[in-house]
Design a protein around this nucleic acid. Structure first.
Lengths: 207, 207
DNA sequence: ATGAAACTAGACCAGTTGGTCCGGTAATTG
DNA sequence: CAATTACCGGACCAACTGGTCTAGTTTCAT
């Protein structure tokens, strides 16, 4: 709340980040219940007491991590701009989301965990933070459709499908790896994936 | 293994099913670590000792549930038949998968959990059971493409996208509900969803 | 009927969990 | 300088976990 504004991150700020990173790492691999505070503290190289000093409870820590994740998650969506052509905007969005799946797979997985749990923590935030952005972007789609730049689609369903296909590369990476023995870290597979998903959605909106 | 073959399910068979159902319900809501054997036993209305009698450990129980889920999960995929047109086959597949997301959302979520965990239990099974079916269906796609019935796509990527979009309705139901305030149980939303996903994929494969 | 095998419950246990308490040190501020 | 505040670690704890042990009861083929 009333965190004093500083230019240089204070020592405690850095420590908070280290803890958050450790928590993200462990929570995203084992779920909240599967990861103990002991392990998080160990990973962050602080004592458990110290961890509890910064985040008074496991729930608080989990909520903090999740809010971070949600902010990250929103960035590409917010960038969708009606000034661009839908083709361009969607292609860019897909690339950004798949890049996110590659570079922040743990964040994506944690988000997925939370939704699977029934969004107990993020539920409200989805309505407060995501919903408005989503409605705004739905309006952008409506504009594009009305001006004949893209075929008519339900913007909400369209976004759901976009999220599903792009996040799948992070959340179901284990499955993809078991079946295709390939990872997004392989640049060829990364580009293939971007190309495939892009083609899928652009074919749909061709006017 | 050597379960005696009976026509009518024995009492113990029924009990096993009750336990499996309870375990699926709880595991799919809270993850394996989040659900205790006590709770599962309570839900299945048996004593914990009794539960342990049928499934000697939590891991064994989890594995049993998961194998059940995988079998269910495979059914629609196995039904894809080269004798049909790709348009028909894919439309049917999508409808079946979204139906599965509606009627077996818990199974879908548990599957998702397992993949998020890194597929520790199912990993081998994915290669043993899913991989062959997938390769077989990839060949069917190749046949359709070669015979000019559908546009060229990477069959594996295509299947990943199909899975992603259809399972999304189960796994991310909380999010969809928070944003759209609608459920697959609403027949109108169900049909909208089927129509949307079908249109998305059929547009892509139009020759 | 009877012996074996399947089945069941309650008491119990050792390990782990999230979290507290206490006692102290470093850094700020008056 | 004094004193308040922020920060930190180790011992500790009650609750819960997966799982065992014991001591029975039911089922069923012979």
């Amino acid at each position: 709340m009333a965190t004093p504004l500083r230019k240089t991150p204070s020592k405690s700020d850095r420590k908070r980040e280290v803890i958050l990173a450790a928590a993200l790492e462990l929570f995203s691999r084992s779920g909240v219940d599967g990861a103990s505070l002991d392990r998080v503290a160990e990973r962050a190289d602080v004592s458990k007491t110290n961890l509890i000093y910064y985040y008074p409870s496991k729930d608080a820590l989990y909520a903090a991590v999740l809010n971070n994740v949600l902010s990250l998650w929103l960035v590409p969506l917010e960038a969708i701009d009606r000034a661009n052509s839908p083709q361009e905007a969607i292609a860019t969005y897909i690339r950004q989301k798949i890049t996110f799946s590659r570079d922040h797979a743990d964040a994506s997985r944690l988000f997925c965990f939370e939704i699977l749990y029934g969004a107990p923590v993020l539920g409200g935030r989805l309505r407060d933070r995501l919903q408005p952005v989503m409605d705004e972007k739905a309006a952008v789609f409506a504009h594009w459709i009305a001006s004949g730049q893209m075929a008519a689609v339900d913007p909400y369903q369209f976004l759901y499908s976009l999220w599903a296909t792009t996040q799948h590369f992070a959340d179901f990476a284990s499955q993809i790896e078991a079946l295709s023995r390939r990872t997004l870290d392989d640049p060829a597979f990364f580009e293939e994936s971007v190309a495939h998903v892009t083609a899928l959605f652009l074919a749909r909106i061709r006017p």
